[in-house]
Design a protein around this nucleic acid. Structure first.
Lengths: 342, 342
DNA sequence: CAAGTTAATGCAATCGGTTACAATACAAGA
DNA sequence: TCTTGTATTGTAACCGATTGCATTAACTTG
């Protein structure tokens, strides 16, 4: 096991002071170019690596950003993370990633860990049941940038990166209406979460505009799991008046529900038209292919990370507060096409 | 912005020495229980948090583990990561995660970053084109545990966590043969990677046992992307002698290929039976459902992390070298069932 | 040639815990 | 009473990089 080289070792070997070595390695302008070269060479030769702890201790910066997501193993989240990782990496930041498993308690614990690890910034998509903002205020108090993405909390000092869920919900419902469905059902998640509340709001706006009264029986609040998809199918099967269209706020749930309906003999889209959300790979694999809302996950990750990094580098100072809204798009596929129009 | 409390502040307030405070906070036996209580109380009251850098600087431990994966946004990998995260979190370790994007160069850069971040251990699933072990030897030299999972490199001092790919490949091919397919085609990835080489070996063993000669035209080496799936379908369409069975080493590719074949009018499994690999959610969504190999991703993540953590805690000292092999299982579904047997 | 600049480097304190090595106090044993 | 032991706390060096404030040498300029 080799001994670790320090700037003191380098200094001694080259008959210089540690200060000069430090400055040279950081490309300080006051240091002679030739000296820099000399030091860089020797450092490489001896396999010197900077001790980040000493450095962090002194500079009070960690070059590490925390990310808290509900789950790692969803197509959408892992795509977002991939985007984040790319940007962070480019700017020399490390990522500390943890998952809340949809529980506020765990999210709280994760936030605390991040705080104690002294991350320079935090990116969060909140859990299903998160009610309070408490666990993030420690960051705000210490001026550590906090940015929410996808599932956001509104807070005057936190950035938000989202899509226009209301509009997407409107478009989805509108499309089903356009295809001739009268009775619609919307399957949603926890309405404390903006993503679901907004999609619902859009759904209702479309209904209202079409002069169709919406009542509670048309809104099914679930956890959007695959099991939920199956039980939604069951519930529909029990209904006297079957819906003509189904708007489900998550592709995996929608797909499972479609399959369950098909097993029960329903034909899609003839009997029931279905629209999902996220443009998950499964949406293109199911028969008929699922109409869904394209969600720019990769770009969302990149954008969110850019915002935080910009904030830290002082590039983007103030425009942090206004939410960044990314474009989403309804991808019309066979699961909802009743008309012969195409 | 509140000022950060240090053990010196605590010491001054309580009229004690920093050493006592430090020991008390670390539950050192030499400190009086009452003193400990006193200090703990005050620390909580003032919102003291340990400065991990100062601590790491002194102790030379980071409590951080590095993970390098080819991509974050694949169902399999994100499941593995979810498992790793859970264990790491339980044992008080943080995770530094980065992706190589299937490039050895990026993997090399990532490894270097991890090294400079002084991770206590490293878990890697290598990129498509990784040839050398160089970038990991720095860790070995410094006695930092390195463990490979899924896509592994053999090295006497590195742990391996895998499934029995050879057997899985054998089972897949054997199943197709049992279903009456004579001419088989195997679509694989870069054969430098154990996972693909082993699956191929299993495939060949099954063929040999069935007394069918395998030649190069039966083995298609691709990047297993969705595009690859489409071009495989095209290639098959061009063949004079169509294969009766298709064993594709990745579900997403298999599914895309199936769709492309179906579009061209082939019926699955009647014309061509298909077997995939990974048990990705898409495999249950496509029609007909895809026969595939269940891959215990979550468990693989947990197991790999356990091995490293055990190593670091001195619990598991030596048995690190022998590879850990997890159970995989052929999930027989409709895409390969020709016989009426069930 | 003295005074003033400029360029390059060094000194030493600092960041906040950790820990080897005392130091102190008090009680028990000789 | 004096010695020894035990329990508890303190002193101070250290981990390695950073940086404000000199210092030194070399170069201009009047």
């Amino acid at each position: 096991m080799e001994k670790e080289i320090t700037i003191y070792d380098l200094a001694k070997i080259l008959a210089l002071s540690p200060a000069t070595v430090s400055r040279a390695l950081n490309d300080h302008p006051a240091i002679n170019v030739k000296t820099k070269m000399l030091i860089a060479e020797k450092a490489a030769e001896l396999g010197y690596r900077s001790n980040t702890f000493a450095s962090h201790l002194r500079t009070r910066k960690t070059n590490t950003l925390g990310v808290i997501v509900p789950r790692l193993n969803s197509n959408f989240m892992s795509t977002v993370l991939a985007g984040m990782e790319e940007v962070a990496n480019n700017f020399g930041y490390n990522l500390l990633i943890s998952q809340s498993l949809e529980s506020e308690a765990k999210e709280r614990a994760n936030a605390k860990t991040m705080f104690n690890s002294r991350v320079d910034g935090l990116l969060v998509s909140v859990a299903y049941d998160t009610d309070s903002f408490d666990h993030f205020s420690a960051f705000i108090d210490r001026n550590i940038p906090v940015l929410f993405f996808d599932r956001v909390l509104a807070h005057p000092q936190c950035g938000n990166v989202v899509i226009d869920n209301e509009q997407a919900g409107y478009d989805a419902a509108r499309h089903l209406l356009d295809e001739g469905c009268r009775k619609l059902i919307h399957v949603t998640g926890d309405l404390r979460r903006n993503v679901y509340a907004d999609r619902l709001a859009g759904f209702q706006r479309a209904m209202k505009k079409a002069d169709i009264r919406t009542d509670d029986t048309m809104i099914l609040t679930t956890d959007l799991s695959q099991d939920a998809g199956r039980s939604v199918a069951e519930k529909i099967h029990q209904m006297d008046q079957k819906p003509g269209g189904l708007f489900i706020a998550n592709d995996l749930c929608a797909v499972t529900c479609m399959q369950a309906l098909q097993e029960r003999g329903y034909s899609i889209p003839t009997d029931i038209a279905v629209v999902g959300f996220n443009n998950d790979p499964v949406s293109q694999v199911i028969t008929p292919q699922l109409t869904t809302v394209f969600y720019p996950g990769y770009q969302m990750g990149k954008t969110a990370m850019m915002a935080v990094v910009g904030q830290l580098n002082g590039t983007k100072p103030l425009d942090f507060m206004e939410p960044i809204i990314l474009r989403s798009e309804l991808m019309i596929r066979r699961s909802s096409k009743r008309s012969e129009s195409s």
